[in-house]
C-alpha cells in the first residue's frame, strides 16, 4: 500500500518535472554556447542574430547582468567555471580573474589587425582580446539645466564651480566600475593629490552618489538632476529615447575602459567559443560594435551615431594594470573621505 503510494507519487512528480521542464533545457542538435556578458541588453539580439546567421550550428545563450553582478558571479564560480566564453566584459574584471587561471589563450583570426591597445599585452597568444572602448562622459539635461540657469560645463574642473552645487550626480566607486573609471582617470591625469583635491571640490557639488554607473545619466534623462557623470553609450541611448540630453566629453581627458572577451579554461565548446571570438573581430562584427562607442578594436571604423563627439584624442593613456592593482586602496580612501559621510544633504 505504502510503496504503491510512493511509487505513484514519484511517477506523478517525475511527470510534473517533465511537463514543466524543471530539469533544464531540451536537447537540441545545435551547440549551445553559454556566454556571460554585461553588454547592454538591447544589443544582445543584434549580435546573436548576426553571429548565428554565419554559424547556423551554434546557438548563443546569453547570461547577462550588470558588470558588478556578473563579475561577482564569475569570481564566485572560479573553482568551477560554467561559462564557455566571457564576452563584452570590462577588461578590469577579466584582469581580476586571470590570476585564478580562469581563461585559456587564443589568438582569434585577424588579431594582428587590431589596435594593439586592445590585445592582452602580457600573453601571446593573448588571454583576452578587446572588442571596443567606452568612455566616461558627462550628460547635461538642457531643460532642467536651463531652469536652474546652469551653463553647459566644458571641463571636469567646471563641475567644481559653486554654480553647480547640488546639481551633479556621480556613481560611487565603491559599487560602480564606471565610477572607478572616472576616479582612476583623474588620478592618472593629475596625480593622486591633485585628483583628490579636485574630488574634494566636486564632492561639495554632488547631490548624491548612486550605486550604478548608468544611473546618473538615467536620472538626468528623467529630469531628476541636471548633470550626471556616466558613460557615453548611456547618453546616446537616452537621447534616442527622447531625453533632452547633451553629451559632454570634458576637455582634460576621458577615462575609458575596454570591453573584452576571453575564453574560459574548461569550456566544453572550444570550437564554438573560438568561432565567436573569430567572428567578433571580423569587420562586419566590428561595425555592429561601433554605434555609441568611442572606438572599436579594429581601426578605421567610424561611429555611425550622428554628432557623436570625436573622443579618440581625449582618451587618456590608461594604465589598466595600475588601476587594477590600486583599486582596493583608492576605493578605501575615497570611501573614507566621501562615503562615510554621505548622509543625504538637503537640496537647496
Amino acid at each position: 500500500m505504502r510503496t504503491n503510494l510512493l511509487k505513484r507519487l514519484t511517477a506523478a512528480l517525475a511527470m510534473g518535472v517533465f511537463a514543466l521542464g524543471i530539469g533544464g533545457g531540451v536537447a537540441v542538435a545545435k551547440t549551445d554556447l553559454l556566454v556571460y556578458t554585461s553588454i547592454e541588453a538591447d544589443e544582445l539580439a543584434k549580435f546573436k542574430n548576426a553571429f548565428e546567421k554565419d554559424y547556423p550550428d551554434i546557438n548563443i545563450k546569453w547570461v547577462r547582468d550588470s558588470t558588478g553582478i556578473m563579475g561577482a558571479k564569475l569570481l564566485a564560480e572560479k573553482d568551477n567555471p560554467r561559462a564557455d566564453i566571457v564576452y563584452g566584459m570590462a577588461a578590469t574584471v577579466l584582469l581580476q580573474l586571470i590570476p585564478y587561471n580562469y581563461f585559456q589563450a587564443y589568438a582569434p583570426k585577424g588579431v594582428e589587425k587590431l589596435n594593439p591597445l586592445y590585445v592582452d599585452p602580457k600573453n601571446n597568444p593573448p588571454l583576452w582580446v578587446g572588442q571596443r572602448a567606452y568612455v566616461a562622459a558627462v550628460c547635461y539635461n538642457t531643460i532642467e539645466g536651463k531652469k536652474a540657469n546652469l551653463p553647459i560645463p566644458k571641463t571636469w574642473k567646471d563641475l567644481t564651480k559653486p554654480v553647480y552645487k547640488g546639481h551633479v550626480i556621480m556613481p560611487n566607486p565603491g559599487s560602480s566600475g564606471t565610477a572607478y573609471l572616472d576616479v582612476s582617470s583623474w588620478i592618472q591625469m593629475w596625480g593622486e593629490e591633485g585628483a583628490f583635491k579636485f574630488m574634494d571640490a566636486l564632492h561639495k557639488n554632488i547631490s548624491r552618489y548612486t550605486h550604478s554607473g548608468s544611473k546618473p545619466c538615467k536620472l538626468a534623462a528623467a529630469g531628476e538632476i541636471p548633470i550626471g557623470v556616466s558613460f557615453a553609450y548611456r547618453v546616446v541611448k537616452s537621447k534616442a529615447a527622447g531625453a533632452p540630453l547633451v553629451l559632454i566629453t570634458p576637455e582634460e581627458g576621458l577615462g575609458w575602459e575596454v570591453e573584452a572577451m576571453a575564453i574560459v579554461r574548461n569550456t566544453k565548446n572550444l570550437a564554438a567559443a573560438r568561432a565567436l571570438a573569430d567572428w567578433t573581430i571580423s569587420r562586419k562584427s566590428m561595425e555592429l560594435h561601433a554605434p555609441g562607442y568611442a572606438e572599436v578594436a579594429l581601426p578605421g571604423i567610424p561611429n555611425p551615431v550622428k554628432d557623436f563627439p570625436d573622443v579618440g584624442g581625449k582618451m587618456i593613456k590608461n594604465d589598466f594594470a595600475w588601476a587594477g592593482a590600486n583599486k582596493a586602496r583608492i576605493v578605501k580612501k575615497w570611501t573614507a573621505r566621501y562615503d562615510a559621510k554621505s548622509e543625504p544633504r538637503k537640496k537647496k
Binding site: 560611487n172 565603491g174 559599487s175 582596493a328 554621505s342 548622509e343
Partner: peptide, 25 residues
C-alpha cells in the same frame, strides 16, 4: 535602500557594495 536610499548607507547595501561593487566576498 539600494534603489531609493541614495548615499544613505545601511548594512545590507554595504554587502552589496563589497560583493558586487568590489567583488570582495
Amino acid at each position: 535602500p539600494k534603489v531609493i536610499g541614495g548615499g544613505y548607507n545601511v548594512l545590507a547595501v554595504d554587502i552589496y557594495k563589497q560583493v558586487v561593487g568590489q567583488r570582495n566576498f
